[in-house]
Design a protein around this nucleic acid. Sequence first.
DNA 1: CATCCTCCTCTACAGATGTAGAAGACTCTA
DNA 2: TAGAGTCTTCTACATCTGTAGAGGAGGATG
Lengths: 178, 178
Amino acid sequence: MRKDLITDAAIKLVAAQGMRGLTHRAVDREAGLPEGSTSAYFRTRKALIEGFVARLAEQERLDVAPDPDDVAGSIARTLDSWLVERDRTLARYAAMLEATHHPELKSIMAHSPREQATALAELLGHEDPERAGAHFTAFLEGLLFYRLVGGGSTVGPTPGTEESVRDLTAAVEKALRP
Amino acid sequence: MRKDLITDAAIKLVAAQGMRGLTHRAVDREAGLPEGSTSAYFRTRKALIEGFVARLAEQERLDVAPDPDDVAGSIARTLDSWLVERDRTLARYAAMLEATHHPELKSIMAHSPREQATALAELLGHEDPERAGAHFTAFLEGLLFYRLVGGGSTVGPTPGTEESVRDLTAAVEKALRP
DNA sequence: CATCCTCCTCTACAGATGTAGAAGACTCTA
DNA sequence: TAGAGTCTTCTACATCTGTAGAGGAGGATG
C-alpha cells in the first residue's frame, strides 16, 4: 500500500535528519514516488506526522510480553532489537519530544509499557508496585536512550551481539531486584 | 549582551516548538529584537544551533559534584531542579537528538556525567565500576526523560515539591546499591 | 572636530515549504 | 462496454526561510 510506503519513508527521514527533515517533498524523494504523492495522502503536515507516529505505534505492538521463564533475558533481547532497529527507535524519540508540544500524539502512541511494568513489579514481589514499575520503566527507557543517543552510544557493546544482550541482561536483572 | 538574549530565546523556542521552530526570524520575535538581529549574530542556521547548544552547556556546568555526605539526596535535588527548569532540559534533549546527525554538537555538550558516575560507583564499592557507572548514568537519564517527556510526565509527583525529591531520592538510592 | 570602528537595523532575493485543486489513469461493477 | 468511483500525478501559489550585503547610529580615539 502506498500509504505504508510513505510513512516508512517518513520514519527513515526523521531518524536521519530529525523532524526538520520531514517535508512532503522530501518524503516523496525518499520513497521514490512522484512529487505530490505525500501531499495527496497527507494534506497537512500535522496529518503526516500523525501518520508516521501511528505507523510506529502499529509496528511496536508486535514486540511485547516477556517470557516468564526468562524475564530479564527476554526483556534484554527486546531492548537489543530496538537498538538494532536504530531508525525506528530514533524516530520514536523524535515523536515523543514532538508530543510534548502536540499532545494528541500521545494518545496515538499510548503503547504504555507502564502498566506492564507495574504488573511485572507486582509479580516479582515489590512492596510498592506502582512506584517500582515506574522506576523500572524509567530505567529501561534510560538504558535505551543512553545507548542510542546519550554518552553510551560511543562506548557500549555493539547492538545485536551476544555481548550486548549479556550487558543488557545484567542491567535488567539488577533493576528487577526488589 | 545581545548574544545571550538571542541564545536564551532560542532555547525557549526549541523547548516550546522543537527544532522546527528554530528559525532566525522566530528567534528575533521571541527575543523582542528587530528582524535581522539573529541573522546578524548567527549567519547560518548551523551557527545558531551551535550557539544555543553552547549556551546550554555553559549553564549546565554550574550544577555538578554531589555532596559526599548525602549522595542520593543531592543527586535527587539536582534531578528535581532539572525537572523544574523544563525548558532547558527539553532543549537539551532536542540537542542530543540533533547531535545524532550533527556530530560536532557532541563535543560542544560534552558535560559527560559518565566519568563522574564511574568514579562514584567505584567509591561505593561496585566490582565493575565502569559498567556500574554507565548503568547508573543510564538510570538517571531515564528517570529524567521518563518524568519529563515519557509516560511519567502525566503521573509522577510535581517537580519542585518535597514529594518529588523524596521519590527521586528513593530511586537514586536503589540505583546506587551495589 | 574628523576619523575609525564596532554594533545594530533594514532590505533583497533565491529557493524551499504547506496546501489546494485540476486533470489524467486505473479499476470494478452493472 | 460504458460509467462511476477511486487512486495517482501534475501544477500553481502564497508564505516562510536561509543567507548576504548596504548602510546608519553611536562611541572612542587621535
